[in-house]
Simulated scan of single mutants.
Amino acid sequence: MSFESLGLSHHIIHSVKQLGYLKPFPIQEQTIPVILSGKDLMGIAQTGSGKTACFVMPILEKLQQQEVKRDRNIQVLVLVPTRELAIQIDEVFRAFTGHLKREIKTMAVYGGVSINPQMKGMLGVEVLTATPGRLLDLIHNKALSISQIQHLVIDEADKMFQLGFEDELKQIFALLPKKKQTTLFSATLNDKISEIKNILAIQPVVVEIAKDALDIDKIDQVAYHVTAETKGPFLRYLIKENKMNQVLVFVSSTRTADKLVEKLLKNKIRAISIHGEKSQGSRRDHLDYFKKGDVQVLVATDLIGRGIHIDALPVVINFELPRSPLDYVHRIGRTGRAHDAGSAITLLTDEDMHHFGVIQKKMGKTVEIKPTTDINLHGY
């Protein structure tokens, strides 16, 4: 099945191709037509299964057909449990807006930072991705209204309750219009998710996708124990000592990606970054440079990294761990493709050890963790 067959216009397909996606993930095949049809949806799928694009593409598809509104009435509200997820989802929206019929303003808001810039930037926002507490703060300050939203998305709904957002959600639900399209995504189906359905008075189409499995047996995995101070020098040591000519490095944020490239270039390692804040043309060019061998290292975030398909990519390095075990599996799955062996290297600080233990347990494989204290990193 192709993206074209799902009912998406060439405006969206253009971005799909530039991002490097070859075909829809199973959950995208089943959910995109449902959302385009206007029906409520509940998707049960693991993090990293491609679910963000499930709602981003059809929502933008529908929104681009409407007249632009330059006020403080949000058209699409995406509720998420964490700041990191809010930023990531907003990056996905931005990545798909480059070739739409008209400009669509998106924004992510979350706590832990000053509310004033968020209040000032709210005018004209049509798609808002928000954590519940900060959303309520903005509403109380009259920075925006959610009384006219057309589409409500709740992502990682199960985590909303794990993190104690039940009261905030009920306050938000009370402010929403009765008529709207609702999309819920959760890793599990439980009583709390059913409670959300009842509060919102919806009977959604339910799509459940079993955990997908990548063949990771042919990938040689190894991890190295480093400190926060030695992580950068050790990465440069690995690349230089092993004469790596094509290595994909994963990081967790766009800021880290750009800073890491800056350090690599200073140390005479040809590197380039690719992430959601770069233009469509820039992402395409950078990926081409990497594929052709013009640069040794491509530093990527998970958003763009999932769309990178390179035959016989020899090495993937996790400079930072991803949020979920499935994201880790998909990262290392960029190597070891087309029946070729591949190598996956992970750099771990003390703070990463517990999370990496969870990743190994979920993956069903034990990865050797090697010390680095005896390695001379002087000059790296």
Rank of each mutant, 00 (worst) to 15 (best):
N245W: 15
I13K: 02
N245L: 15
I308S: 12
E126F: 00
L321M: 13
K243W: 07
I154R: 01
S15L: 06
G305H: 12
I32E: 03
E156Y: 01
K69Y: 10
K218T: 05
I304Y: 07
D258W: 04
P58F: 03
Q203H: 15
P117E: 08
K365S: 15
E61H: 05
V299Y: 07
I104A: 01
N198V: 01
K159L: 11
D191K: 07
V315W: 12
A228V: 12
V316C: 11
N242F: 12
K23D: 08
V127T: 02
L189Q: 03
K69T: 06
G357E: 06
D215I: 06
D220H: 15
T254Q: 13
V222G: 10
R283M: 07
K278V: 03
E84K: 11
D302N: 06
D71Y: 05
V109I: 06
P322N: 07
M107H: 11
L36T: 00
L235N: 04
Y380H: 05
G293A: 10
R323K: 11
T188F: 12
V206C: 13
P26F: 08
A45F: 11
G98Y: 04
F165W: 03
L303H: 09
V205A: 08
D90T: 12
S324Y: 03
K243M: 08
K69N: 09
H309N: 12
G379K: 01
K231D: 13
K266V: 09
K243L: 10
E91D: 14
V34G: 01
I369T: 10
R306P: 07
